[in-house]
Design a protein around this nucleic acid. Structure first.
Lengths: 273, 273
DNA sequence: CGCCGACCCGAAAATAGCTTTCAAAAAGTG
DNA sequence: CACTTTTTGAAAGCTATTTTCGGGTCGGCG
């Protein structure tokens, strides 16, 4: 890149919004160069001409203004001030949600929901952080009158799985897709004829062998300071929420009254006012 | 607005991104009108000409693509197709994260982190969905070598709380801020001289009386089909993650090795490959 | 029912903005 | 220092946008 082109590029980078408001001539003046140079710079940046660069610039400016600023995109560091930690975390989880939503196979989700809505009994397997996600699902399913369990104990999980049969549903939640303590009960459920669902970040992993329906969670890398399931948990929760809402929609006539009943039953557990 | 101008406006509204890619002539053809009409429409919409409308269009499209789309903002309905449920959920939770991050008091967070990092022992109180959030925090704190508990049983919580004294920390998590089973143990901890932290959507609620530091979660309304803690859970998890990262940063020298040790210890629990 | 006026519309001229060309200037090279 | 290569801006050329203007349509009124 030549000297005068650099000058143009600098101005563009420094103030995309302002540059988008200028014509070729205006930008040439502002950078102390000529129209030709501006156009050449636009070409170098990969656009067919200045017109298109300008559109892209406007889009970029809007995107930044909309908050998803590529400004705070870096990893969380040891010496980040807390305010920046908050911003970065919120942004990463937000991105994770978008990724998950984009990558979720609606057809698989649909089948899984149908199976859950019709299930006689539902088992959810997960260990560690994934178990908490499973319990979250179970708590919600219980509230709309379904029968569901999320054993935290792997032995208990397997003994539960043995009881399942056709018409029952087993859901396994594991980010890695190869947690043996979770694969095992799902395999047992699968072999007993239950409908099986896997919620995993590795749809090719071993767990998929025993799953009738696979729901893919986002598998964004985790940095040193964000260990053990932060983005994977966010992603799993979104999937689980979708499952729940889907089931609630399909069993609405039973679910709605059950839901209000559970609210009322808990009312006196809150202090007045 | 005249008929042919409406036609133009409709196309613009229906597909801002696509329209931004077209020239006046292109758009005139596509809407079956003339260049003049397109320009007139742009004027009517408040722009000096089509050129500027086009820039605004590109900006709008980028903004929508950036996720904060004002597109799907409606409530989730009983007859929504699953694809739309996924999109709406992801977007709402995303918005919830942004709201929480914006409303979080960094100073309070800072004090809470300092207390946690120095704590001899940490108790986390929460019931139902909030208990799961508490367990999530505890699991992570344990991984970096801290001593933490999140009793699900309210009696156990109180008996735990009695053991706390100055230098210990108690964290209470409740969306409503008036769940008696959570207020009670926090009160006991508070009276025993422990440092107390409340994570709640109602910073004015009863729980705040017994809290040295209050962290506010987003209190977005929950619609009929999104009951019991969806956005509140998302919000709580973000706060809890911030607490964890803050503590991990401040105890980095001890936290980092503890973290890797916990990874290694779990390695053989995964199938090979 | 037919005439008149107001408004809407698009073709084409006019203009502004973008792109290309080309020769001079600058920078590098033997 | 002479020569080659690269960079640069002025100006010509072209495209896209804007304006103008006259034909067409609709509703009101005699």
């Amino acid at each position: 890149m030549t000297r005068s082109m650099q000058r143009v590029a600098e101005v563009l980078a420094a103030d995309p919004a302002g540059s988008a408001a200028l014509t070729v001539t205006g930008l040439a003046e502002r950078t102390g160069t000529s129209e030709a140079t501006v156009v050449r710079t636009a070409r170098l940046l990969g656009y067919p001409g200045y017109r298109d660069l300008r559109l892209a610039l406007a889009a970029l400016a809007a995107e930044q203004a909309a908050g998803r600023a590529p400004a705070v995109t870096a990893d969380i560091a040891v010496d980040d001030p807390l305010a920046s930690v908050v911003a970065k975390l919120a942004q990463e989880e937000s991105r994770c949600l978008a990724d998950t939503a984009a990558g979720l196979d609606t057809a698989q989700l649909e089948s899984a929901v149908a199976a859950l809505a019709a299930a006689r009994r539902i088992d959810v397997y997960g260990i560690g952080a994934s178990n908490l996600v499973g319990q979250d699902l179970v708590q919600k399913l219980l509230r709309i009158g379904l029968i569901a369990h999320a054993p935290a104990d792997p032995h208990l999980a397997v003994t539960n799985a043995v009881q399942l049969r056709s018409g029952d549903v087993a859901v396994a939640i594991t980010h890695s897709g190869r947690t043996t303590d979770v694969i095992e009960p799902l395999r047992v459920a699968f072999e007993n004829g239950a409908t099986t669902v896997a919620v995993t970040g590795r749809p090719q992993g071993e767990i998929a062998q025993y799953a009738d329906h696979v729901l893919t969670t986002s598998s964004a890398r985790e940095s040193e300071l964000r260990p053990a399931a932060m983005s994977s948990r966010t992603s799993q929760l979104l999937v689980v929420d979708c499952l729940f809402i889907g089931v609630a929609q399909r069993t609405y006539d039973a679910a709605a009254p059950a839901l209000s009943a559970s609210y009322e039953a808990l009312a006196h557990r809150h202090s007045p006012r």
